[in-house]
Design a protein around this nucleic acid. Sequence first.
DNA 1: AGGGCAACCCGGACGC
DNA 2: TGCGTCCGGGTTGCCC
Length: 269
Amino acid sequence: MPELPEMETYRRLLSSRIIDRPLTDVEVGREKSINVPVPVFRETLIGNSITGIERRAKHLLFYLSSGEKLLLHLMLGGWMFYGRPEDKPDRTVQVEVSFGDERLYFIGLRLGYLHLHKEAEVESLLGKLGPEPLSPDFTAERLTGLLSGKRGILKTTLVDQSFLSGIGNCYSDEICFEAGLLPSRTLPTLTGPETRRLSISMQAVLKEAVAYGGYMEDPLYKGDRLTGGYNERCRVYDRKGEPCLRCGRPVIQVELASRKCFYCENCQH
DNA sequence: AGGGCAACCCGGACGC
DNA sequence: TGCGTCCGGGTTGCCC
């Protein structure tokens, strides 16, 4: 599912393709995916261009030359394809935006959305997000500070967007594995060294996932060799019964706080 | 404060 | 081929 590394991959790859190119057409296949009437959406976008793309947590923010912003959240199973219509995947498209001959297709937006906002609206919408774990000022000391006095379950806390932004079900498990910590650990039991390991593992896992293009089934464009490069690099996520890459014992799957949770009972404590 | 849970949503996978 | 069924899962809001 699209989490920080996947959205960061999309941001990088899309930036070099659509920035400063005029939007020539917009089609809305599912009105619920947007937040204004279709004619308003189309009239606002057509003729505009995108001046920059920013990622905040699992969102992408498209800055329009007119000052408005498009706020994208793919939620579960949402993804994008960029290219010519003849290369379009055989999937239901909720929104498509044309840049001349090439189009950006938004696919699988069920709970996901592409919302149009005025200048200031977005900041209040995103204001409750926690810090970005890959930002340069996010240090082990910062994480220790955030955790101090806090109760709760490790995995639940990692996926809490108001605590940290951008980590979801897949990477919370990957981070716990890398840190050698059980996802079910409660925060007050974490020792200083364990918290430092958690911090190091968090950055290592997320950086590696970004470098390899994240965990995605489909390419962003024809010939895309980056997107989804992390699929084979997941150590525990969706690997139930497969051998742990560290010790060879089968990966365990349980349900934790009504989420799928994968770990190695030998390597994580 | 934190945990549990329902609701949201519907494409597509799967079974017959 | 065709139809019915059910799953997935981040987020919000509500309750305990």
